[in-house]
């Protein structure tokens, strides 16, 4: 963690990710699970609206407006999960200590396994649909691919949020901003 000199960006990100002002939002496992559930729901909603916006022809702009409106709570939920994980996935590798690096590897491995299962399920669904309706794979392949890509991108964050541990009661919480190495 300190073997490499931290840049100004690293220090500011470290401070931001360890800022405890929003701690109440992710202090318990139930709250973290709720945040991840909300984040998943918002991601699905935004993805659905995006698909609708690009595929539907001659539609009004309301899906785009709704998408922009939903992006704000999505970003807040992302921030809460990042706070809960102390920036496990946002901080650069050399900023993390050995425990955090190992934790990041575990999270990425779990996310990879889950994404693999999801890809297998998507491929199976596409093949089954193709058996019923020959044009279906061609019609659904692109949206499905984009959906899987988005899930592949965000899955580590969800996994990290779900696996994050409670701040132990006996840990002295540093003052906000006291982490400027």
């Amino acid at each position: 963690m300190t073997t490499t000199r931290l840049t100004r960006y690293d220090r500011s990100m470290l401070r931001l990710m360890n800022d405890r002002r929003g701690q109440a939002l992710y202090s318990t496992a139930a709250r973290r699970r709720l945040t991840v559930a909300v984040h998943i729901a918002l991601t699905v909603a935004i993805g659905g609206l995006m698909t609708h916006f690009f595929l539907a022809k001659g539609e009004p702009l309301w899906p785009a407006v709704a998408m922009v409106v939903l992006l704000l709570p999505w970003m807040v939920a992302t921030g809460i999960i990042n706070g809960a994980t102390r920036g496990l996935l946002e901080l650069r590798e050399h900023v993390l200590d050995e425990r955090q690096s190992a934790e990041r590897s575990r999270v990425v491995t779990r996310a990879h396994r889950m994404t693999t299962l999801l890809l297998a399920a998507a491929a199976t669904a596409l093949l089954i649909t193709g058996g019923v309706d020959g044009d279906a794979p061609k019609a659904y392949a692109a949206p499905l691919l984009i959906a899987v890509l988005v899930v592949h991108w965000i899955m580590p964050l969800w996994v990290a949020g779900l696996w994050a541990q409670d701040e132990p009661a006996d840990v002295e919480t540093p003052e906000a901003g006291a982490l400027g190495h």
Binding site: M1, T3, R86, D97, E98, R99, E167, E172
Partner: peptide, 14 residues
């Protein structure tokens, strides 16, 4: 914990 963590290059939670 914070002082020790900073001295040894670890996170205070570690």
């Amino acid at each position: 914990r914070q002082s020790l963590a900073e001295a040894v290059g670890a996170h205070y939670q570690t």
